[in-house]
Design a protein around this nucleic acid. Sequence first.
DNA 1: TAGATATAATATGTATACATACTAAAAATA
DNA 2: TATTTTTAGTATGTATACATATTATATCTA
Lengths: 144, 144
Amino acid sequence: MHLNTMPGHMIRRLHQISSQVFQHRLAAAGLELTPVQFATLTILDTHPVLEQAQIAALIAYDRATIGGVIDRLEQRGYVTRKTSVRDRRARDVSLSDAGLKALRQAEPIVTDLQSEILKNLTQSEQRDLIALLTKAVKDTDHDA
Amino acid sequence: MHLNTMPGHMIRRLHQISSQVFQHRLAAAGLELTPVQFATLTILDTHPVLEQAQIAALIAYDRATIGGVIDRLEQRGYVTRKTSVRDRRARDVSLSDAGLKALRQAEPIVTDLQSEILKNLTQSEQRDLIALLTKAVKDTDHDA
DNA sequence: TAGATATAATATGTATACATACTAAAAATA
DNA sequence: TATTTTTAGTATGTATACATATTATATCTA
């Protein structure tokens, strides 16, 4: 059994590299945002108010995990959370001014670091990989 | 900022799909092995004895994480661990009979599930993706 | 509309994943 | 060889990641 021929193994390793580059680059810029936290802030930037379940759906996440992510973002003052008037089970989450500021600081760094994740590939290969990843992830149903 | 054009985000999502397919397929077969546990057993299958640091290096892992993985594999009787005679800091890890048996049961399922992870891609696209992943992960130094 | 079903979020438990600090032991070097 | 540096593993703390169970609230349906 050769791990290096198994996409699952290679995907795990690239994900690992990706997370590390992200964390290190942001830390080097004095920011402390995880990839998931960044994704959450990004989604909230284009949707003024979202319930946690909607955030989970938009960035393809588990509801339980998102709860913790929002907890930490709220503690740091990056998002606000209040019970929805429409549905008292739901919590309306919004980006705060501080959250927007952090997001704007992070954006150029995150854009920049993408090519570092794929620095072993040529520009053309990077485009190919992104296209393949996009198609691979395209939502038919991997869960069915 | 569009998450869907960022390799980091797409890689995270594909990794997520990959982990879920792995977990569900193995559970459906009555086996409870995580991707990392499987990778560890696989490496030990081709190396009779390995120190934890060597395992970490071979499957590209953190030493602290591997410690926990080995703990759980040892608890379940899949590996044995004893202090190295050559270096009293190190622990020699080996596959047990039970571990080998679990590995042999898991192997065909894991081989099988790889194509399910990439089921949105054609055979040719799957090959292209694996080639690109291999090159992307190729060890120059992402950590430097 | 009452009872069944579904859903939003939380709580709990397990397993990565990694940084940092720590201990013990080995290796390097002055 | 004494001292410094490095290394192997563990401990601790934070943050995903997800399964399962629970609670509160909506929604569906008989």
